[in-house]
């Protein structure tokens, strides 16, 4: 038995929602003119089966959750036992990094160097001892990659 019913319900709900959007969109697709199937039925059936499977999981997990009572305790157990600091910082800084590249705020090397320095330091909880190594690694990796990709592999880089 899985021990995270709330997570499973939320994720399956989210997946079902995505599939519902696809299903509604597929419903409005015109039927095929020179072939029997057309472009709509395959996504339609696929989305419908995923929604049914998600409902099976949601109902099963909801029964487990409500049978046990203690929803608040379960919520704490699933979401509050581990600090989300690492994932949130990583995801947040990566989104900022990609936005900066998309807006071409500076060159790839500079943006990447700043990103790596901040992210490595953040994951090291901004310990003073780690700041210099983080900066050195960031400089070597970012400008090294920029040089390698543009001059050796001849692959374009963002920004």
């Amino acid at each position: 038995m899985q021990k995270n019913p709330i997570t499973q319900i939320l994720v399956c709900g989210f997946v079902a929602l995505i599939c519902l959007v696809f299903l509604i969109n597929a419903w409005s697709l015109p039927p095929g003119t020179f072939e029997p199937l057309g472009s709509g039925p395959v996504p339609l059936v696929t989305a419908a089966i995923v929604i049914i499977c998600c409902l099976v999981i949601i109902i099963g997990q909801a029964r487990i959750l409500f049978r046990g009572g203690q929803i608040e305790r379960q919520f704490r157990m699933e979401f509050m036992t581990r600090s989300p600091y690492g994932p949130l910082v990583t995801l947040g800084l990566t989104v900022v990094y990609v936005t900066a590249l998309d807006l071409k705020v500076a060159s790839f090397g500079i943006i990447t160097c700043v990103f790596l320095t901040i992210l490595i330091s953040a994951l090291e909880n901004f310990r003073l001892k780690s700041l210099l190594p983080a900066f050195i690694v960031a400089v070597i990796v970012s400008f090294g990659v920029e040089y390698m990709f543009t001059n050796v592999f001849v692959v374009d880089l963002p920004a």
Binding site: T90, T94, Y97, V98, L101, T112, F115, L116, L119, I120, L123, V137, V141, S142, V145, F149, V155, L157, P158
Partner: peptide, 11 residues
């Protein structure tokens, strides 16, 4: 290691 891998994911 992980931030460097994240950068490679973007590239």
């Amino acid at each position: 290691v992980l931030p460097v891998v994240a950068m490679f994911c973007v590239v």
